[in-house]
Amino acid sequence: MLETPRVVENGNIGPVNSAKVPRYSGEPTFALLPRLRDLETEGRTADIKIIGAPFDTGVSYRPGARFGPSHVRQSSRLLRPYNPGTSTSPFAQVQVADAGDMALNPFNIKEAISSIEEDALALTEDGATLLTIGGDHTIALPLLRAASKRAGEPVALLHFDAHLDTWDTYFGADYTHGTPFRRAAEEGVINSSALCHVGTRGPLYGKKDLDDDEAFGFGIVSSADIFHKGVGEVVSMLRDRIGNSPLYISLDIDVLDPAHAPGTGTPEAGGMTSRELLEIFRGLRGLNLVGADVVEVLPGYDHAELTGIAAAHASYDLLSLMADLRANA
């Protein structure tokens, strides 16, 4: 087998050189980046690692997010090395690699949660930053646990989602995709003075949902707020709320309107556009981003890769923020 030609800049091994190999061929790693195991064979490691968490046992409506990581990777083939939205070349600034998928027990939520935390800690033991592609939103809890342990303190959280995900239980179950941030608050792994939901909308079970959420310290920037206030004002509000705290970003793709992301588990009308989401991300440049996840992509409900492409581009902008931060540290 011939050696795969890759883009190499600043000593960093980048994606497959698409001027020599068609983007639709070869291994579907994220953005056609090298695999972590291949770098390790050469005695190298990665500054940013992309890991899949194919798990959806915590869902309450549509299943299928376990197939999300592979779908987002497939949809990321058209990503290119230079990001004009941030004026950065993330794959040249730092070494980025695809670490494959976690092996998670689909029949035992608590065991899967423990496995995710252990894997996240192992992958960041060398100081790497982790971007996780889910999977349902249950995976955010163990990832926040790991991020807090690495940071040595509770982390700030920006949670992009149509829903609060601070409910208590479903059918008596404490760990589901609707409860991760309530558990995280109870466990003290998130900073109660630096929390915000972004893009929320849709019906709730009652006003108590909002009261409970506020008691945990969350602020809310609704989808309607983004429409009326505009991206610039929203970014300023979020930056003021987060400050210099170590920051974790959790993105449920259902924060986007179903017109932009039909392939998701619990869609709600009246959501953000993909343009608004990317512009908000770009406005967070320079914040102390220590980890992120992109979850709830269901390829079985997707059309023409709309959801996968949105998730891939959102992941790319998160990677760009991480790379720029590390390169300028």
Results as ranks from 00 to 15, higher is better:
K110Q: 15
K110G: 13
K110T: 15
K110W: 12
K110N: 15
E111A: 14
E111S: 14
E111F: 02
E111P: 09
E111Y: 08
A112S: 14
A112N: 11
A112G: 12
A112C: 12
A112H: 08
A112I: 09
I113R: 08
I113D: 00
S114E: 13
S114F: 01
S114M: 05
S114C: 08
S115W: 06
S115Q: 15
S115M: 13
S115E: 15
I116L: 09
I116W: 01
E117F: 02
E117A: 08
E118F: 11
E118Q: 15
E118R: 14
E118G: 14
E118S: 15
D119F: 04
D119W: 01
D119V: 11
A120E: 06
A120Q: 07
A120D: 06
A120R: 07
A120W: 04
L121P: 10
L121E: 13
A122I: 13
A122M: 14
L123R: 15
L123W: 12
T124V: 03
E125L: 13
E125S: 15
E125I: 14
D126H: 10
D126F: 05
D126W: 08
D126I: 09
G127H: 08
G127P: 12
A128M: 01
A128V: 03
T129N: 14
T129H: 15
T129P: 11
T129W: 11
L130E: 09
L130D: 09
L131Y: 03
L131W: 03
L131D: 05
L131F: 07
L131K: 04
T132W: 06
T132I: 13
T132D: 10
T132N: 08
I133L: 15
G134V: 03
G134Q: 02
G134A: 07
G134I: 02
G134P: 02
G135H: 03
G135W: 03
G135S: 08
D136S: 06
D136Y: 04
H137Y: 10
H137G: 12
T138L: 03
T138K: 00
T138M: 00
T138G: 00
T138C: 00
I139F: 00
I139G: 02
I139M: 10
A140L: 03
A140C: 10
A140W: 00
A140I: 03
A140N: 08
A140D: 13
A140M: 07
L141P: 00
L141F: 05
L141V: 01
P142V: 05
P142M: 06
P142S: 08
P142L: 07
P142W: 03
P142Y: 01
L143M: 10
L143T: 04
L144V: 02
L144Y: 01
L144I: 04
L144P: 00
A146T: 05
A146Q: 02
A147Q: 04
A147P: 07
S148V: 03
S148Q: 02
K149R: 14
K149D: 06
K149S: 08
K149P: 00
R150G: 07
R150E: 13
A151F: 07
A151M: 07
G152Q: 02
G152I: 02
E153W: 01
E153N: 10
E153A: 12
P154K: 11
P154S: 11
P154Y: 06
P154Q: 10
V155M: 05
A156M: 10
A156G: 14
L157S: 12
L157Y: 10
L157I: 13
L157R: 11
L157G: 10
L157H: 11
L158I: 15
L158P: 11
H159K: 11
H159N: 14
